[in-house]
Design a protein around this nucleic acid. Structure first.
Length: 407
DNA sequence: TCTGGGGTCCTAGGACCC
DNA sequence: TCTGGGGTCCTAGGACCC
């Protein structure tokens, strides 16, 4: 055992689907099995999921598709546009298998969950985790990796190790690792959950390269280089429990609708039309959640890949809660005009709704609204629309349409 | 020519109130 | 009229995650 076991020590697992979007596409398109395979973001812009074969050929996360297209053609890649309906369905199936083994599940993202197994004995822990891994693969067809440790950060770190070192066979326990503290000197600080690109770059300029060096950095310097959560991350790496497993899903706090434009644009008409459409789809999401909003933030930004880092945002508070796109547009359009400059070009815009309230508590104002409803902008050349060339034609509308998998 | 979208949290600074 | 500090709230921006 790496550490002496503490009283009340928790056992937190992370269960993580391998190359999730690629694994989903392979269920629907078995022809891609064994071939290098990638899934592209919206606009078919960049790579957001890679099969092992694609990783081995040097394709990186976030690589722009247009820079790799020829290479991929040459090497017989299977390329898919993202299909979130499919991934959502398969995600539900994965979680329902996991929940047969524990109810202490936090669904952390579409392909990951934290599970609190503190009530299970150490003798049985690995068996249960092995069983879950086996059953998710057998029943849903999705391979998973599992890391387990005394907190979320160490679970993530061991799951990372399980993926790096094939001898773990996809399951790594913190309590099986000998000399854990020494091992931390061979792990790059940027591989820690919670330490991103900016922070790790900052740390490296202070000579902090490895996780071992990070946990030996003074609290003061850690907080200076990051923030309070960076300090919590340090304490979790040392064995404390700071980031709690969230068993009850929290209510949605805000909701965003935004897109990059198909090309850079500078016409206010075009931007207005795009913004109106994002408001419309945001309102659709509000209605699906039976929510309304009292506050919106609109934002407008340039093409960061062309050093056009200008970005503006504006928060607007309404005089009542709203869920009507034309009313919301009426409150927002003048602010969009203020933010816009005809001397700049723009690549992206969008809207976030905050202060979401249930629709059944909407109070209609006693007096008629005193703002005029503006006619929404429509029927322009839609330069802002996105493209999607490789979308799989198959959608799952019920579980029965998915192929059954037995292994 | 073409480089994702959505979510949460934290911080600094300003406005406002007492 | 002049004086000031502390608390709270809001916003814009910037981190992080997937």
């Amino acid at each position: 055992m790496g550490f002496k076991q503490k009283v009340m020590e928790k056992k937190i697992a992370i269960i993580d689907c391998n190359n999730f979007y690629v694994s989903c596409e392979r269920l629907m398109n078995p022809i891609s099995i064994g071939k290098p395979t990638v899934v592209l973001s919206n606009n078919d812009g960049c790579v957001i999921a890679r099969s092992q074969e694609a990783k081995d050929l040097g394709i990186k996360m976030g690589d722009p598709y247009f820079t790799q297209k020829d290479f991929m053609n040459k090497h017989g890649f299977c390329v898919y546009s993202s299909n979130y309906n499919l991934y959502g369905d398969i995600s539900d199936r994965v979680f329902s298998v996991i929940k047969k083994y524990s109810l202490n599940v936090e669904v952390y993202s579409i392909d990951e969950s934290f599970v609190d197994f503190s009530n299970i004995n150490f003798e049985n822990l690995k068996d249960v985790l092995e069983k879950i891994k086996f059953e998710v693969k057998r029943q849903v067809g999705i391979p998973v990796s599992i890391g387990v440790g005394p907190n979320k950060t160490l679970a993530k770190l061991t799951s990372y190790m399980a993926k790096q070192d094939k001898t773990y066979n996809g399951l790594c326990s913190f309590w099986d690792i000998v000399n854990f503290r020494n091992l931390l000197y061979s792990v790059d600080v940027s591989d820690v959950w919670g330490i991103g690109r900016k922070w790790s770059k900052k740390m490296k300029s202070f000579g902090i390269e490895s996780v071992g060096q990070f946990v030996n950095t003074s609290d003061g310097l850690v907080q200076q280089l990051t923030n309070i959560n960076g300090l919590r991350t340090k304490y979790e790496l040392l064995g404390s429990y700071c980031f709690h497993v969230q068993l009850k899903p929290k209510l949605k706090k805000n909701l965003t609708s935004s897109r990059s434009f198909g090309q850079d644009i500078n016409s206010l008409d075009q931007i207005s039309e795009a913004m109106y459409n994002y408001i419309k789809s945001g309102v659709k999401k509000l209605n699906q959640n039976k929510m309304a909003t009292t506050t919106a933030t609109i934002f407008l930004s340039g093409n960061t890949h062309k050093d056009q880092n200008h970005s503006k945002s504006k928060t607007i508070t309404f005089d009542k809660s709203m869920n009507d796109e034309i009313e919301i547009w009426s409150q927002i359009s003048k602010h969009l005009e203020d933010m816009y400059s005809n001397l700049k070009t723009y690549k992206k815009c969008g809207v976030t709704f905050h202060n979401l309230v249930p629709q059944n508590v909407i109070q209609n104002t006693l007096f008629p609204s005193n703002f005029e409803k503006l006619i929404p902008p429509i029927n322009k050349q839609k330069k802002w629309e996105m493209k999607q060339e490789f979308k799989s034609q198959k959608f799952t509308t019920s579980w029965n349409e998915l192929p059954l998998v037995f292994s």
